[in-house]
């Protein structure tokens, strides 16, 4: 697209398109994915490949059936497949990944109108579908050496101590992509530097969750507890890569902060007061549903207009 078009505003366009953004997201997830494969072995690689292939094929199939323009080249299905796989434990049978990927694309994304229309993060929708359907298989975490054990979050919940250093590097039980905080932060920094994501959502999420954990976690200002809560589970993966999904996050600046606060509180409630140790994925899909409300109350006033009644969108 030419930079100088005789059209109404906006006159200056960036060359960035959906495909490029998705490519950046894939690149930023690669360190975590590679570490997952290193950590959990060939089974993790198989799951990642199966999940991506399923998502792309599902999207192609849906578009083919309903005679829509093929959208698989925008790579969004690849991102969904990759994110879904990173949210699965490596011991999961491959056909469950197929089911989850198909559910994510068909039910969560395509029937609502495809990319841009889905009200919920497809990868997380697929994960929660699998979580509810196959709770046993989805919480069967095997560590890097084939030892099946509790995740650090479950250990914290049970009142045991955890090794924070191991959690940073990632040699712990968990889902394929969530274990290594270092790799995830590497990807997150790449996304922040390239401007793909905005710091508002992850920052307000993490700060709110920290405050919540300090207030209600029962450990006061114990920094080891706080760091292990932040590094454990899917908080880093969810906060930087899934909560910031363009489609399902608010677009208003204040809305993003509000959304992060909602995420933080919900994650805290689910983790500390809930029955299971993890709550990031449910917090994110629940907040996804709040987004239309959040956007409605945080519409910024349009430039030069003192009082905005409705629908003034400055972004």
């Amino acid at each position: 697209m030419g930079l100088f078009n005789v059209t109404s505003s906006p006159h200056v366009r960036e060359k960035t398109d959906t495909q490029r953004i998705m490519l950046y997201v894939i690149l930023s997830l690669l360190p975590a994915a590679c570490f997952g494969v290193y950590n959990f072995g060939i089974k993790a690689l198989v799951l990642i490949v199966v999940s991506i292939i399923t998502c792309v094929c599902s999207e192609w199939l849906y578009n083919h059936i309903v005679h829509k323009k093929q959208t698989i080249t925008d790579l969004s299905a690849v991102v969904t497949g990759l994110l879904l796989a990173l949210n699965l434990p490596s011991s999961l049978p491959w056909w469950m990944a197929v089911l989850g990927g198909a559910f994510a694309i068909f039910v969560v994304k395509c029937v609502f109108g495809g990319l841009g229309q889905n009200f919920m993060n497809p990868a997380l929708g697929g994960r929660c579908f699998l979580m509810i359907s196959f709770t046993g298989a989805m919480t069967n975490f095997s560590a890097f050496d084939g030892f099946t054990g509790a995740t650090p979050l479950a250990s914290i919940k049970a009142g045991e101590s955890v090794d924070v250093m191991k959690m940073l590097i990632g040699t712990i039980p968990g889902t394929i992509g969530e274990t290594s905080v270092v790799c995830l932060l590497l990807g997150a920094i790449f996304l922040l530097v390239t401007g793909v994501i905005d710091l508002k959502i992850p920052a307000s999420y993490i700060i709110t969750f920290s405050v919540f954990a300090m207030l209600f976690g029962g450990h006061g200002f114990d920094s080891a507890y706080l760091v292990s809560q932040l590094c454990g589970g899917g908080l880093m993966l969810g906060g930087f890569f899934m909560a910031t999904d363009y489609v399902t996050a608010p677009i208003t600046p204040n809305g993003k902060i509000l959304y992060g606060i909602a995420l933080g509180i919900l994650t805290g409630v689910f983790r500390i007061f809930g029955a299971s140790a993890e709550g990031v994925s449910y917090a994110i899909i629940f907040s996804n549903l709040l987004v239309p409300l959040i956007e409605r109350v945080t519409v910024p006033p349009a430039f030069g207009i003192v009082k905005v009644k409705k629908g003034g969108d400055a972004s």
């Binding site: 049978p93 469950m96 089911l99 579908f129 509810i132 359907s133 196959f134 709770t135 298989a137």
Partner: peptide, 10 residues
């Protein structure tokens, strides 16, 4: 393997 979600509300 039963897909438990089908006997639940969703």
């Amino acid at each position: 393997t039963p897909i438990t979600i089908f006997v639940l509300a969703p």
